[in-house]
C-alpha cells in the first residue's frame, strides 16, 4: 500500500493542517509517513500546498510527481495539479469555489461543496475537514476514528474547543460519498 496525495489551496484554507492531520493519523496507525510543504514566500491569499505520502514500506522520495489523489481548494491549485494526477487516480475539488469542469476522463472527479457545508456548520474554516472526510470516504487510507482522535494531538490545547465542529465537518464530508 502506498498513497501519494497533494493538497493545495489559498494560504489560510488550512491545507497544511489538513496534510498534517492525515500524516499524523497514518503514523498512529503504524504506517510510514512523510509530509512535505511548499515553502515559497507564501502568505494569506497566496497559494500553498503540501505532499503527504502514506505507505506500508519505507518512503523513498518525499515528493510526488504523479500523485494518486489531489485535494484542491481553489482554481489555481486545480489548474496546477490536475495534469499530474496518476491515471486512475482521483481529484477532489472544492466545488464551492471551483466551477470549472476538469478535462480528464481517466481519473475520478469528486466534487465537494466544502465551503457551503462548512458555512452550514457555522465556521467556514472547517472546509478543509469536509474535504478530508470526502477523501477518506473515497479511500480509507486511515480510519476516520484515527483522524478524529488525532485532532487532539495536532491542535494546540487552546484550540481544543474547535475539535467537535471539525469532527462534524469530517462526518459531513464522509456522508457526501456514502
Amino acid at each position: 500500500m502506498k498513497e501519494e496525495i497533494i493538497m493545495a489551496g489559498f494560504g489560510g484554507q488550512g491545507v497544511m493542517s489538513l496534510g498534517r492531520l492525515l500524516t499524523y493519523a497514518g503514523m498512529k496507525e503504524g504506517d510510514e509517513v512523510s509530509w512535505m510543504p511548499s515553502y515559497g514566500p507564501e502568505m494569506r491569499g497566496g497559494t500553498a500546498n503540501c505532499t503527504v505520502i502514506i505507505s506500508s514500506k519505507q518512503i523513498p522520495s518525499p515528493l510526488s510527481s504523479q500523485p494518486d489523489a489531489i485535494i484542491v481548494m481553489n482554481l489555481p491549485s486545480l489548474d496546477k495539479f490536475a495534469p499530474c494526477v496518476k491515471r486512475g487516480g482521483a481529484i477532489l475539488l472544492n466545488s464551492s469555489l471551483i466551477n470549472k469542469e476538469v478535462d480528464r476522463d481517466d481519473v475520478k472527479i469528486i466534487k465537494v461543496p466544502a465551503n457551503q457545508i462548512a458555512n452550514e456548520l457555522g465556521n467556514t474554516k472547517v472546509a478543509n475537514m469536509v474535504m478530508l472526510g470526502a477523501y477518506l470516504a473515497h479511500k480509507r487510507i486511515v480510519k476516520l476514528e484515527t483522524v478524529k482522535a488525532a485532532l487532539q494531538d495536532v491542535f494546540p490545547a487552546r484550540r481544543h474547543n474547535l475539535i467537535p465542529i471539525n469532527q462534524q465537518a469530517l462526518d459531513r464530508g464522509v456522508a457526501l460519498l456514502n
Partner: peptide, 10 residues
C-alpha cells in the same frame, strides 16, 4: 538540504 529541514516525518 531545504527538504530535510522542511519536511515532517516520525
Amino acid at each position: 538540504d531545504g527538504i530535510i529541514g522542511q519536511m515532517m516525518e516520525p
